[in-house]
Amino acid sequence: MSSFNSALTPILTPITPFDSPDAKRILFDKIDRIPDLVNSKISYFDGFVLTELRPYPPMCMGKYTSVIIRKVQDQKEIAKIQNPEASKKGEDNFYGELLSTGLSCSAAALSWVVVGGSAAVIPVSGGASTVITILSYSAATASSLQCMNSAYRLYNETNEDGSETNAWLDSQDWYTRTSTALDFVSVAGGVASVGATLKTVLNLRAAGTTMKEALKGLSRQSRKRLTEEIIRANNPNISNKILKSLVAAGKYPKRFSNVNITNSLRLQLKDAIGASLSFAGSATGGIMRDPQRIPNFIIGIIEEFDVY
């Protein structure tokens, strides 16, 4: 009978994040470093079941202290516990949702402009920007869906029981994960465009010019130098001889035209603005604000005392 009970114990015991011996040891060490909590009882509450991780030691003590660890679902709950007054003031989320909708929809609009611009610019770049185009297609789709999601949240906020719907959504793991994924795709598009812009700035600097000068129009020599720098950036470790032979073979132009350079730079700048909007949207509630998206815990300490 005892063997039957011991076989059943692991099945009946609720799973906690501290089940492994290592996790337990780290947790107990951290708690025992606080002098007032040495020899305290430690329990974990998952919302339904209270699991004892460490009992009181079998000896008489002056005071009995219990540490209860509880998993929290969302940032709002932490804010409520850490600062209840500030949390009360933030109950009306309408303006927050309005800001979020404005940012994500502006980012979506700009990403569609970038998609249109990059699709029309492909023949010039010889298809080299296909990866960036795919990223911008995905980013435009993701930011459009984020815009729609924000619009729904804003609509929910205006309804009587809509705030409950938003709160329920925030408490769902799948929703957080989906939002994170959409945010990630949107930010990836932003990172790609920022990378391309940085590369452009570095090329311009290597050619001895600035973006402002390039937008105004460059001289023949500067354009030739810039063209060579771009070829070098695309083909690292290329020798002067090979570079010249590639230009002579017509694989690369001798120099880009002023129209090509200024228009490409304008597209880059537009792209960078779109990226900054994506980052701003992410910073208000996405992965850039909460990069770890790891479970949070609330730790409560209860001290038992006798009354005579």
Partner: peptide, 15 residues
């Protein structure tokens, strides 16, 4: 002219 690489369009018509 865009296909030939002579022009670059930043904002396609109707975007």
């Amino acid at each position: 002219s865009i296909k030939a690489g002579e022009r670059v369009i930043l904002l396609p018509p109707g975007i």
